[in-house]
């Protein structure tokens, strides 16, 4: 069992080393310009760039979506282990499963009616 995690770690090492070495190469082999102009060091703008944005505010909907994601994703994490052994638990397991989904559905209908799923 632990051996398969070892294989995963070995693979993970390659998965980290290859992008990291490519990143290093992009610095080592990069063409060096004769002179650097200021225009290259300011962020892109289609037109005249004023430099970095003054404020970093964004729509509240993004925040709301992230909150909803946390709620639903946690529910799914609970459901996965249940799904694996559901055939052993038979109807008891199914009733539990169903109750869980119903509670989730109540919350879902609530956020739908509240308009949290509308993009503003």
């Amino acid at each position: 069992m632990l051996h398969s995690w070892l294989a995963f770690l070995i693979y993970g090492f390659f998965a980290l080393a290859i992008p990291a070495s490519m990143m290093v190469m992009s610095f080592v082999f990069a063409t060096r310009p004769d002179r650097r102009t200021r225009a290259r060091t300011i962020p892109f703008e289609s037109g005249v760039s004023k430099g970095p944005p003054d404020q970093r505010s964004f729509t509240i909907s993004f925040y709301l979506t992230a909150m909803l994601f946390i709620v639903f994703d946690i529910e799914i994490v609970f459901l996965y282990p249940l799904a694996v052994i559901l055939h052993q638990l038979a109807w008891f397991g199914f009733v539990e499963f169903f109750f869980f989904i119903v509670i989730l559905a109540v919350a879902y209908v609530y956020i739908w009616r509240k308009g949290a799923l509308e993009w503003r």
Binding site: G12, A15, L16, P19, T31, R32, T41, P52
Partner: peptide, 30 residues
């Protein structure tokens, strides 16, 4: 791509700016 001149915004947060692409391809490969 490797030969491209390496320049980036002066106001970029260096460590995160460089780590982000490495991290995103690491998770994809892993």
């Amino acid at each position: 791509l490797i030969r491209k001149e390496s320049f980036f915004p002066a106001s970029a947060v260096d460590v995160l700016y460089i780590a982000a692409p490495v991290f995103s391809s690491f998770t994809a490969l892993a």
